[in-house]
Nucleic acid binder design. Structure first.
Lengths: 132, 132
DNA sequence: CTAGGACCTGGAGCGCACTCCAAGTCAAAA
DNA sequence: TTTTGACTTGGAGTGCGCTCCAGGTCCTAG
């Protein structure tokens, strides 16, 4: 049976399946992200060697998904994770990374919007052709 | 040497290299798109068997790039190309395809914008932490 | 006549981000 | 004690969209 506290001794952590449910990424992907160096530090383990995700881990993964959804490559996320995992002192570098990402996202958004506008025109043409 | 009219007899068509320059996609990709069934009809050939792109082909490829840039998968572009290549009578279906694409693009734009807003907050936090 | 360069083809290779597999471990229920 | 099922691992496989390769043809310039 499913036991949310299995091996957890009531410390409020989540199993990988629960973390997957909480973040919306698959368990496969959670392991993949860890292997790819996206977790700052390796996820904690129960005595059974099973992963135990803290609330902080969940928040981190959630932020990772925001970076992914906006198109940041895994390599760059790994770089950001390395910086974040190194502790204080590199905030400027982290800021630069995020700011540059933001710039690219806005650029891309603009490109998509411009292309969508052209598609909209085509749609209007079909619409009119059909209405007649 | 480069000769824009090579084998062209002045019919105003473009070689694959020129078509690539005109549309911004590589010659590799132009051939790939044709193989993938994205060209409605096979591109015309000179007697040398070299491709000759018409102004209409160029416009079509340009539109294809708009679909691609906005995230339409090649499979769906192929479906659209099949409809467009079949001549008149399926305008409603083409319209539905484009309209559905448009809906998904807007959905995706919204998702990206929401996630970018969350990243912006993080940027603001770093900005403030550094300003102090 | 030869060399160069743009083009042709089928098919292989690549980078990315997962996604899955096989064989094994572990804890708890039956 | 056996079974169940969630988990573990390293590594293989997948789908996508190109991108490139090898070997060949054709046309033009020298």
């Amino acid at each position: 049976m499913f036991d949310p506290l299995a091996g957890d001794s009531g410390t409020g952590t989540l199993t990988i399946a629960e973390a997957a449910a909480a973040t919306g990424v698959s368990t496969h992907t959670l392991r993949y992200y860890e292997r790819a160096g996206l977790m700052r530090d390796p996820v904690a383990r129960a005595t059974s060697q099973h992963r135990r995700y803290s609330a902080d881990d969940i928040r981190w993964v959630t932020f990772l998904t925001r970076l992914r959804t906006t198109g940041m490559p895994i390599r760059e996320m790994a770089r950001y994770a390395r910086l974040a995992g190194a502790g204080e002192g590199n905030e400027a570098e982290r800021l630069a990374l995020l700011t540059e990402h933001r710039r690219r996202v806005l650029e891309r958004l603009d490109e998509v919007q411009r292309n969508l506008a052209a598609i909209d025109k085509k749609i209007a043409v079909y619409q009119e052709r059909i209405d007649r």
